[in-house]
């Protein structure tokens, strides 16, 4: 059962990776990274159950936060550097 979830998550990560490779815009890539981040959170939770050690959830939790902070930081950076290029 957790195996099915893990397989689905791995397939989805592969699809999101394809999107990250293809782009075309920076935002597509950021979306792909964010998406893979969410899937990694779920993947680690699923792996924890698969291995019978749900203590792994702490990492999932940490990830859920880092992923968000990372996305916002990247967007702020892109905006700032675009503004600099503008003038």
């Amino acid at each position: 059962m957790f195996m099915a979830a893990t397989a689905a998550l791995l397939v989805t990560i592969a699809l999101a990776l394809a999107r990250a490779f293809a782009g075309p815009s920076v935002y597509d890539r950021v979306l792909a990274v964010n998406s893979i981040g969410t899937k990694t959170v779920l993947l680690i939770a699923a792996l924890g159950f698969l291995a019978g050690r749900p203590d792994f959830l702490d990492i999932s939790l940490l990830y859920a936060l880092i992923n968000f902070v990372g996305t916002i930081a990247v967007l702020r950076f892109i905006r700032q550097s675009r503004a600099q290029e503008g003038n």
Partner: peptide, 24 residues
């Protein structure tokens, strides 16, 4: 910029791999 994004993904995948290897 795209490379930096991909390295972020690399870090995420690497961490998932550490979890599978029990190196929490």
């Amino acid at each position: 910029l795209a490379s930096a994004m991909l390295l972020g993904i690399y870090g995420l995948l690497m961490a998932a791999l550490w979890v599978v290897l029990d190196a929490v």
